[in-house]
Amino acid sequence: MKIVAVCGMGIGTSVLLKMNAEKVLQDLGIDADIEAADIGVARGAAQTADVVLTSEELAPEIGDVPAEVIVIENFFDLDEIHKKLSAAVR
C-alpha cells in the first residue's frame, strides 16, 4: 500500500502526519510505504498512491486523483488518524 502525506511545503505538517500515520499503521498491522510530500510533488505522487492524507485546506488543491483523500483535522490526534485510516484501508 502506498500512502502520501501532503502539506504545502513538505517539511512540517506532512512529516508530522507521516510519523503519526506510521504509528497507526503499525498498530493496525498494515505494511505501507508512506511518503511526505509538498503539494506540487503530491499531485504526481497521488496518481499512484492508494491513500492521500492531508488537511482540509489542501485537499481541494490535490485535484482529481484515483487515491482516496483523507482529511485530518488534528495532526496530533492518533485516535482520529486511526479511525479515518482504518476505515480507508479496510
Binding site: M9, G12, T13, S55, L58, E61, F76
Partner: peptide
C-alpha cells in the same frame, strides 16, 4: 506567504500553529 497561498493549514492541532516555509 505560505499561509496566504495555501490557507491556515499550518494550524495542525487545536490552538497550535506550526509556522514554516520551504528550505
Amino acid at each position: 506567504e505560505a499561509v496566504e497561498e495555501h490557507g491556515p493549514y499550518i494550524v495542525i492541532a487545536p490552538g497550535v500553529a506550526l509556522a514554516h516555509a520551504r528550505p
